[in-house]
Computed example of a mutant assay.
Amino acid sequence: MAALRAGLLGVGMMGRHHARVMRDVDGIDLVAIADPGGDPHGVAGELPILPDIESLIDAGVDLAVVAVPTQFHEDAALKLAAAGVHTLVEKPIAHSVEAGRRMTAAFTDAGLVGAVGHIERFNPALQELRRRIAQGDAGEVFQIATRRQGPFPARIADVGVGKDLASHDIDLTAWVAQSDYVSVSAQTTYRSGREHEDMIAATGRLANGVITNHLVNWLSPMKERLTIVTGEKGAFVADTATGDLTFHANGTFPLEWESISAFRGVSEGDVTRFAFAKREPLRVEHEAFRDAVLGRPSEVVTMEQGLRTLMVVEAALESARTAETVVI
């Protein structure tokens, strides 16, 4: 079977990695790259840099990846849908829920694969975590907490830390727990002189009763990417920067002082660091997108799922503006 002809819109900080991976995935042939800003990282190779989305479509591509700033996602995606091109857009799906709805409808109506690049779902630590939670290794899950913080990335100018980074945590939390958010409450702050928030603290509840907490910012000198799942049997800690997963089991030591046993709670038990295959998440994401286009079973993140995540993020930002919990 001939390889799928692939196009890439945007070769900035994220697009350059897409270019590298797309060239190395079986069944995909990167034939066209477009970026009105040129090729700042020199990733085009022998391919010419096309000026716009129209010229990318004219190259006759079967699928495309959109890695331009969020504010341009809708325009590019709608044009690709109209041209019959299966498309993966970087997260978040769009700059607004209304735009995301239009994009989702366009791909659904055209019978095309529309996907969103929520890459954390393909992180090996989170995939292993989801599998172990599903098989009951944590028992009943009580809480999922995430910390995603670090210095300000110069690449972001059109959205705040909520849509750029917290969207990762909201999506991965619902995915790991296999349950949607039903409410969210948040606080934000603006410290870097930009019109968008650069710090958000959000709490929520999932439909299955799990409570969530997310600390996300662009104001920290150290970089953290942690997901902590606490359940009746202990706590999993996933470090998505390194792909490591650790389990801290509840202790089972007997307590001889019975009069305080009711107040003791859990104790520290064995700590296990798991060994498992660690493939590059972006490569796994592209393979899932390819398989979806070919009609094979796939774990690709659909536009419907990406839209749901954006709805939760916007609900969190609304909560911060109104100082009220938002029911989703």
Rank of each mutant, 00 (worst) to 15 (best):
T309I: 00
L165D: 11
L307F: 00
D39G: 00
E120R: 14
A2K: 14
G37P: 01
K233E: 11
H118P: 03
P36D: 04
L4E: 01
I144V: 12
F263C: 10
D35H: 07
L317Q: 06
T309H: 03
G139N: 08
A3H: 12
M303A: 07
F289R: 06
A6E: 04
I28Q: 03
D39C: 03
P40T: 03
D137F: 07
M13L: 12
V300N: 02
M303K: 00
A6L: 11
I200V: 12
H18R: 03
A94P: 07
E287A: 01
D164Q: 08
V300Y: 00
A316M: 11
N123F: 09
T108I: 02
A249Q: 15
G100C: 02
F247C: 02
F274N: 09
S183M: 12
P69D: 08
G136Y: 08
T70P: 02
G265N: 06
P40D: 05
G111F: 05
H73M: 01
A134H: 12
D24M: 13
P254M: 04
L112P: 09
E280M: 12
V312S: 01
F276I: 10
V293T: 04
V284I: 13
R194D: 08
A67F: 05
S96W: 02
R23Q: 12
Q305A: 15
H41I: 03
A110M: 08
E268I: 14
D109I: 00
A145P: 05
N213Q: 15
K278T: 13
A99H: 08
R16K: 15
E74Y: 09
L165N: 13
I93E: 04
I33K: 00
